[in-house]
Structures are given as structure tokens and as C-alpha cells.
């Protein structure tokens, strides 16, 4: 490890907000110091931490719920990390990251480490970068670490694979929730949350979900994130599940799978960068692009370091 990386790592462990912010950017942008920093974040020296994934429809109340979960852990004097992920606009490459709006009461609490992150159209999904960010936060003493991501497209599945425990948040009045859940998310989420339990339609949604959840033996918790009602109960469920997973060593298996997914994601990113660079000098032929791709890969993946 270089001196610079060592200094950065020491500052992260000292909970220096500037250092944590910069370290996450270094990983996000894969700048020069990235690999050096990651050497220092090895799992073996890391304090224990739990990764909570929160996903669900746009507007279901994920950030409001996260805000209340933060408050709960702060009352117990736990330092907590939040990664709030929003999609990158495929047209401009820009993004508006607005989840913080709901969490501003914690803005000056130095033991609440929040980082907004855009998906940036990563080929391998968001696991690569979010995974490293989790470890930066953990090294600074955060536990738990929450990842919020909107439940559309691939990111919801990614998040479930990265999290130790994942929450699927739905709410009445958002359209065809159940259909989306049948499509597989329900299978992989650990806990189901019906937020906005104060709104009409919550009971019907509960009933519908219950039928699906029973098959899968999933708990459903009702919350009103805007007032905090039900959040204590939800956290009890999380703690029960955590205990359960730890005792059965299910968590180890889950983390192993998640590490493998992260490796694949990083690999895809690296391969993509390499291929995009080399295609510039590729001599096109008249054969079908699929066949040319095989040649292209043969030429250029051999020598990947």
C-alpha cells in the first residue's frame, strides 16, 4: 500500500467525513488510488456489519422509511451508513439524486454517513461500486449499512444479492404492484413491507400479498413511514432474521454468493472498457458480427491482466 492510501485509510477509520467522501469517489471513478485503497479494506480486519437492502416502487416511501430506521439506530448510538441509489438518465448520462431530501434531519449528524449514487449504466449492474462503498462505510464503523434503490429494472435484483437482508417496500395506490412482485422479486426479498398503511387500499394490498407471502413464508409488516408507526416492529423482524441467518450460517453462504456476483460485475466492467478501447483498431470483415465477436474476443481477452 502506498503512503497516500495508508493515510486515506487511517482517515476513514478515524471517521473523517472528507476522507470517506473522497474514498467513495475514488472507487466510483476507478481512479489511480482505487486498487491500493481496496487492499486496505480487506474483510478480515473489518468490524462486523449488516447490509440492509431496501427496494420497491418509485414513491413507495423507501427514503422516508430509511429516515426512520436511521433515527432508530441513532437512538441506540449506532453509527449508520446509507447508500441511496438512483438511475442515471440514459440520454444525458446525468442524474438527479433526491433521496436525501427525506433524510435531511440527519444532515449534520457525523455518525450518519449518507452517499447518493447514480447507476451510471454499469454493464455489471451496481454491485461492484456499491459493494466497495459498503466496505468503506464499514471500515469507518458503520453498522448497519442500508442500500436504497428503486425497484425497477436490474438494480432491485442486484441489491437483493448484495444485501444480507432485503426489504421489499410497496404501498397502495402505485399501480400494479403485485404483478411486479410475482415476477420474481418476492422470491428473493427477505421481508415484505406495506408502507402508507394509513392510506385506503392498504388492507387490500395486505390481503393480496399475504396469499403470495404464505407460500414463501415471508413476513409482512405494515408501516406508516411518515409518522414512524410500525418501524419498531419492522426492526424487530430484521433483528430476528439476522439472528436466524447468523445461527444457520445462511449469512455466510449469502455473502459468498454476493462476493461472486461482485467479481462478475467488476469483471464485466473491466472487459467492457478493454473491448471498447480495442474495437477502434479492429479490422472489420464481411462476416456476421456475432462471428466477428468470437474472433475479436479471442484476440483481445487473452492478454487481460
Amino acid at each position: 500500500m502506498s503512503n497516500r492510501a495508508q493515510k486515506l485509510l487511517a482517515d476513514i477509520k478515524n471517521k473523517n467525513a472528507r476522507a470517506i467522501g473522497k474514498a467513495i469517489s475514488i472507487v466510483e471513478n476507478e481512479t489511480e488510488l482505487c486498487d491500493d485503497l481496496l487492499i486496505g479494506l480487506s474483510e478480515s480486519e473489518m468490524p462486523q456489519y449488516l447490509v440492509l437492502g431496501i427496494t420497491g416502487n418509485p414513491g413507495a416511501g423507501k427514503s422516508t422509511l430509511t429516515d426512520k430506521i436511521i433515527a432508530h439506530y441513532r437512538k441506540q448510538n449506532q453509527r449508520i451508513g446509507i447508500i441511496a441509489i438512483d438511475p442515471t438518465s440514459p440520454i444525458s448520462g446525468g442524474a438527479i439524486l433526491g433521496d436525501r431530501i427525506r433524510m435531511m434531519q440527519h444532515a449534520t449528524d457525523s455518525d450518519v454517513v449518507i452517499r447518493s449514487m447514480a447507476t451510471r449504466g454499469r454493464l455489471g449492474g451496481l454491485c461492484s461500486c456499491a459493494g466497495a462503498t459498503v466496505r468503506i462505510m464499514a471500515a469507518s464503523g458503520c453498522n448497519p449499512i442500508i442500500i436504497e434503490t428503486v425497484g425497477v429494472g436490474q438494480s432491485e435484483i442486484d441489491i437483493v444479492s448484495l444485501a444480507d437482508i432485503s426489504l421489499l417496500v410497496s404501498a397502495p395506490g402505485l399501480g400494479d404492484d403485485i404483478q411486479a412482485m410475482k415476477a420474481g422479486l418476492l422470491e428473493v426479498a427477505d421481508l415484505l413491507v406495506i408502507n402508507k398503511a394509513d392510506l385506503p387500499g392498504a388492507t387490500a394490498l395486505f390481503r393480496d400479498l399475504q396469499m403470495l407471502a404464505r407460500e414463501k413464508e415471508r413476513e409482512i409488516t405494515k408501516t406508516i413511514a411518515s409518522t414512524g408507526e410500525g418501524v419498531d416492529k419492522l426492526i424487530k423482524q430484521i433483528e430476528l432474521l439476522e439472528k436466524d441467518y447468523n445461527e444457520s450460517s445462511y449469512i455466510l453462504k449469502k455473502r459468498e454468493a454476493s462476493k461472486k456476483k461482485e467479481i462478475i460485475d467488476w469483471s464485466l466492467e473491466m472487459v467492457r472498457a478493454k473491448l471498447e478501447k480495442n474495437i477502434e483498431h479492429f479490422a472489420l470483415t464481411n462476416s456476421d458480427p456475432r462471428l466477428q465477436a468470437k474472433d475479436f474476443i479471442k484476440q483481445h481477452l487473452k492478454d487481460m491482466q
Binding site: T88, S92, G93, G94, A95, I96, L97, G98, R100, I101, M104, A107, S116, A118
Partner: peptide
Amino acid sequence: GFEVIYTG
């Protein structure tokens, strides 16, 4: 193309 953190 900017990433904009909007705080309200």
C-alpha cells in the same frame, strides 16, 4: 450530464 444531489 451532471450528477445533481438535490437537498430540497
